[in-house]
Design a protein around this nucleic acid. Structure first.
Lengths: 194, 194
DNA sequence: CGCCGAGTTGAACTGAATCAAGAAACGTGG
DNA sequence: CCACGTTTCTTGATTCAGTTCAACTCGGCG
């Protein structure tokens, strides 16, 4: 029988209260998406988070000029959530799309709330996750404020070498906040200097 | 007797469980800082959050070239936290400085954890706060990715008109990710067109 | 009064965007 | 398996937003 990444992740992170992990695994339904499918569209209200069991997601917004801006990628073992909807019942300002065929576990907001109430280990884990997320977003802001396109790209390939290989360059460019053309030039420049 | 903003904030946000609010108010010490004082320096480890009772804080990092980058401002009724340290015992990569004479309530991590365990209203409130924070950081990333300096500035004065008036322009420029000179030009341009 | 830091203005420069065209990679259907 | 159109990536020429550096103005303060 196959061991889910989700299970492995839980046992190694949520200090293995077997009961909790069982509950999570049992109550979270799996769902499969084809490459190109949307898990969430701008304007929809959703209270679910996803754990990526297999595949790769991207979260992105579309601006007034119709341009897409990638907020983040989520490969295996990552969570993807629509924070606004989850908490405030607001329509999402972001889209979530499967870049590859992807299997996720669906985590309902209610479930998290209930587990948090009854189990403080889980509660702490969940809060830790949010803090980590905040820390990484802040780091990204600092980068966008101060680093050049090249520096940001070098940082990206260092931090997410796996993602790099699986994602169209256009999306990486969008994540970095530059045009695909610029990214192409940056890559060329780097390849020459070594 | 003076009513603290902190108290008003709590009663209007944490659905007023008197007992909890009392506990928070009693257990959180007040502290005063002079303009220019640091509440936290890069490299220090700290597990406390602050509620700004009065005054104005800024959180910023310093890059390798010695340039400062403002992550956020926190005027009255805002929280300021060092997420990394709070959660992972890591040295902070940010500084927190008082831009004006400032009074804060100091909120220890332990206190939050304990209250979260015993009271689910407080727990939800706290998680909501983290979610809000994430949503706002994401919004900021999208802006930095896609908007011009002028657009970002217009957005800033719309969102934080009060802060604008109380903060040196250099800091606003840093927050927006541009140089003080550029901000000056943007402001000039705007003033001409109306 | 004169100094000092914050803000402004100007001129030259540069990193990245834009527009346009070509090359390479990719999937789909015959 | 090749031929086809489609999308993605690259390359070039030009433009532009924002930086840099330097000089100047202004208001506050000892």
């Amino acid at each position: 029988m196959k061991t889910f990444r989700f299970k492995t992740y839980l046992t190694s992170n949520v200090e293995s209260l077997e009961s909790i992990n069982k509950e999570l695994l049992n109550k979270c339904k799996q769902q499969q998406f084809k490459k190109g499918d949307y898990l969430l569209r701008e304007g929809e209200i959703s209270k679910t988070s996803y754990f990526v069991e297999d595949g790769l997601l991207r979260q992105f917004s579309v601006d007034d000029k119709g341009k897409e801006h990638v907020i983040q990628f989520a490969p295996e073992n990552w969570f993807m959530a629509n924070r606004e909807g989850e908490c405030f019942n607001l329509p999402s300002s972001y889209n979530i799309e499967a870049i590859e065929d992807t299997t996720v576990f669906i985590i309902e907001k209610e479930l998290i709330e209930n587990l948090s109430k009854t189990n403080s280990v889980f509660l702490n884990f969940n809060i830790e996750l949010l803090h980590k997320h905040i820390a990484s977003l802040q780091k990204r802001i600092t980068q966008l404020q101060s680093k050049t396109a090249k520096e940001r790209y070098l940082d990206f390939i260092k931090t997410y070498p796996d993602v790099l290989m699986r994602v169209p360059q256009t999306y990486v460019a969008s994540y970095l906040g530059i045009t695909p053309e610029s990214l192409s030039r940056v890559r060329k420049e780097i390849s020459i200097n070594k």
